[in-house]
Nucleic acid binder design. Structure first.
Length: 256
DNA sequence: ATGGTGGCGCGGCCA
């Protein structure tokens, strides 16, 4: 069994005790973290290694930052979309045995019409081109992370409220579909067709208590891996803790 | 009503 998870922790240093407890409980084989918000020099490597995980990371000061925790050591590490290098540490790809893991923190986009929004769309276009070659080279690939895109109406508590926003408008949903169409599946939708199942809730307005959320964190898998996917679930438990991340983990399991 | 909350880091940006 292969267990793959993703969690936007919104500061690794703040969430380290929660991560420790969660790893002990869930024991994933591969975990992609986003918004670690820590430089590589300050990364709590020893804390994570003491939990029995190897760790690969690409961080920066204050913003962004990605990491992959694994049972096996990483090889073939990439920290940028080839040909689309930026200062922003949002990409970490590595190989673990026969599995290629691509961990993403997709740009939020701020607001439609902004420079950040334009960057989000260009970033997604470059990502899609690159992932075609990644899939061509790796039959067993998982693409996980905070995509900052809710794929369809079921994934948004109120589509009317979000329909023109950067997380759900037609352009970003089309970009998400274009990404899936290169040969991926949304593992969550292999097992559940219900709406109202979210992975992120705004800290404000008691959004979690009222379930005013979005499903924007995803575990996508290559066609071959999709055939072996036995489960995908959103683990709401960490979002209920004191001082939580605004995101909660998504976990997929594969019969490998 | 451009609010509300949280992280970084110590003023303002970002989500």
């Amino acid at each position: 069994m292969l267990k793959v998870a993703t969690w936007n922790v919104n500061s690794l240093r703040v969430r380290l005790p929660q991560l420790r407890d969660w790893l002990t409980a869930e024991q994933p084989d591969l975990l992609g973290l986003q918004e670690t918000k820590v430089t590589d020099a300050d990364f709590p490597r020893a804390d994570i290694e003491s939990l029995g995980y190897a760790v690969t990371f690409a961080g920066q000061k204050s913003y962004n930052g990605v990491a992959i925790l694994s049972r096996q050591p990483a090889t073939e590490i990439l920290v940028d979309i080839p040909g689309f290098a930026t200062e922003e540490r949002r990409v970490l790809a590595a190989t673990f045995g026969t599995v290629r893991m691509i961990n993403l923190y997709v740009p939020n986009g701020s607001e439609v019409g902004s420079e950040k929004y334009d960057f989000k769309l260009r970033w997604l276009a470059a990502l899609t081109l690159w992932l075609k070659s990644e899939l061509a080279g790796h039959a067993h690939a998982v693409v996980v992370g905070d995509f900052n895109i809710a794929p369809d109406e079921r994934d948004v508590h109120d589509p009317e409220v979000w329909k023109d926003g950067v997380l759900f408008n037609a352009a970003v949903r089309s970009a998400f579909q274009g990404l899936v169409d290169i040969g991926l599946c949304d593992t969550f939708r292999l097992h559940s067709q219900e709406g109202g199942q979210f992975s992120w809730w705004d800290y404000r307005m008691a959004a979690f208590r009222r379930n005013l959320g979005l499903r924007i964190d995803h575990v996508l898998a290559s066609s071959h891996l999709c055939k072996t996917c036995t489960a995908c679930r959103i683990d709401k438990a960490p979002r209920k803790l004191e001082r939580p991340s605004d995101h909660t983990p998504v976990i997929a399991e594969f019969n490998l």
